[in-house]
Design a protein around this nucleic acid. Sequence first.
DNA 1: TCGATCATGTAACCGGTTACATGATTGT
DNA 2: ACAATCATGTAACCGGTTACATGATCGA
Lengths: 192, 192
Amino acid sequence: MARENKTVYVILGFLNHESLTGYDIKKRIDGALSYFWNTGFGQIYPTLNQLEQKGWISKQDASNGQKLERHLYAITDSGRHVLAKWLSKPVENEQVKFEILLKLFFGSAQPHTKNIETIQAFKTTHLEQIPTLKEFEKQLRQVLPASSDHLYYLLTVLFGQKIYEAYAAWADEAIALLENADQTLLGGNDEH
Amino acid sequence: MARENKTVYVILGFLNHESLTGYDIKKRIDGALSYFWNTGFGQIYPTLNQLEQKGWISKQDASNGQKLERHLYAITDSGRHVLAKWLSKPVENEQVKFEILLKLFFGSAQPHTKNIETIQAFKTTHLEQIPTLKEFEKQLRQVLPASSDHLYYLLTVLFGQKIYEAYAAWADEAIALLENADQTLLGGNDEH
DNA sequence: TCGATCATGTAACCGGTTACATGATTGT
DNA sequence: ACAATCATGTAACCGGTTACATGATCGA
């Protein structure tokens, strides 16, 4: 969780491209960041207020005479400065938590078959997402020279592909090891 | 974060092997889980009390006449039941958050060189950990037939190796793409 | 003697999630 | 008419982190 409100940078990052409403920001997050980040309205709206109070973004009414409330937020110079400062800092203690590893670490408390199912499900859900990522890659490569935004977007997509493939490769190896262990033990489970 | 207190299962998982003090549990976490999980004392001790109140673990004084307080916790049958139930459930919404992807996604706001540095640092820190994981693998393979605990431990180690290697492979590709983009633009940065 | 390690805990804080509440607008 | 989407927010809760506080024991 690492003590630093990342939502701040998510918002500043999007606003650095264009002015948006809170609702829009949520859509961007769900769209482009969804496979490695997510945030709810309950975090976005309060953070927008905080950022405005700090002067990193500015609020503008965009209701256009209609009754529907609509606030357009724009990044300010000091906001841009804060974003730039964060971007330039190296990523420290990228502490990723994998629940599946936790489960597997204690896996000897149940039959191998159950754990194989868990691994299989893990593999499947990630493999299923690869075609979408490949499609993203294709589209991004087509518009690549237009702006370096696309290039950086592409990098995150490639990351997804690489690690999802690594997940799948690991899953195969893990399942093979468990099945092999079952064979050498003549199908019996261990006890201790 | 997913609404379920994982620390509960970390504790139950370790106690399922042997009775331990809170201090011991912390050491196990820092030892065997450190590269994919961590928890502080501020979480461990309160959770131990909760688990005891729920009857999933039992507390025993282990001060042995000495003045140093020492509480040995043991898992109960109902605790074992809770652990088993969690283990058998498939991992749902393994929502992993990668700060480096967040930073890169908004990377176009700073020079390519800065982002290359970030990626390089990411690659290095993970590559550095691979030899240790290889050493773990070697040791675990030697004691593999003894107990299936070792086998499951090995699976988590192999996972670490696989994704760290995937990180490194992605980093190379990403850096190449950024350097190539710099070349085609004749070393200039983009603007938009 | 003195530092490292053993050992247990509390308090403040905060990021993030979930659920709740409300209403307008648009398209079918 | 009615559903989907647009749009903004609050409140309760909780998992997790950090800092603080205290003292015993062991080995060099």
